[in-house]
């Protein structure tokens, strides 16, 4: 006990979300047993996050460029913007491969309980973007919880009279769900959000 570098590494790793002291200790001992250079490689990758990663000038997603690859790509539909809470949500939409427009990342949702108001989110860059670009439709794809809904309603109000179509993603049944086993909340939402055939 009392090994300063080990204690420090454990203390730093346990600052990460979801990692307690126990897990941090296990990770540190794993690193110590790993081939020489493993810890240094991981360390360099982590250092590169600072300074190397910034927010895209257009959509505020994380990138190492001035504009992220999606915003820079000529192959994406320019007129449709999908607004999400987190960079991870962009990855999720991209995995689905169904969306050809571009994104805007708010970096959170409105939550007065957590001290997050509109000023803490990337709302101003979104408004500037809508004013200057040829945007026809804004899809509000914030989470379907109280905070995500509040954020969507707030944005919808801001965008009233701006001359863009504002839509909210539908909520309902998960793909692969059998009606019989669906939970009542999802079922009633699916019914509410039914579509014309």
């Amino acid at each position: 006990m009392g090994n300063a570098p080990i204690d420090e590494a454990v203390a730093q790793l346990s600052r990460l979300p979801g990692i307690g002291r126990k897990t941090a200790t296990r990770l540190v001992y794993w690193l110590l047993r790993s081939p020489t250079g493993t810890a240094a490689t991981i360390g360099r990758a982590l250092s590169a996050l600072e300074g190397g990663v910034r927010e895209c000038d257009t959509c505020c997603d994380f990138t190492d460029q001035i504009r992220c690859p999606i915003c820079a790509s000529g192959g994406r539909e320019q007129g449709v913007v999908c607004v999400v809470e987190h960079p991870q949500d962009v990855r999720a939409f991209e995995r689905s491969a169904g969306f050809r427009g571009r994104y805007h990342v708010l970096h959170g949702a409105i939550s007065p309980l957590d001290g997050v108001g509109p000023a803490e989110l990337r709302i101003r860059p979104l408004l500037e973007r809508i004013r200057s670009d040829e945007i026809r439709e804004v899809i509000l794809a914030t989470d379907p919880d109280v905070e995500g809904d509040a954020t969507a309603l707030y944005l919808a109000r801001l965008l009233r009279g701006v001359g863009v179509r504002v839509t909210r993603i539908a909520r309902g049944l998960a793909v692969g769900t059998e009606i019989e086993y669906a939970d009542p909340a999802s079922l009633s939402r699916a019914l509410e959000n039914r579509q014309e055939l």
């Binding site: 409105i110 939550s111 109280v146």
Partner: peptide
């Protein structure tokens, strides 16, 4: 959320 907001009310957010 509303109770937290009422400490420093933003009228548009209160509407929401």
């Amino acid at each position: 959320q509303k109770r937290a907001l009422l400490r420093s009310p933003d009228p548009v957010l209160l509407d929401v």
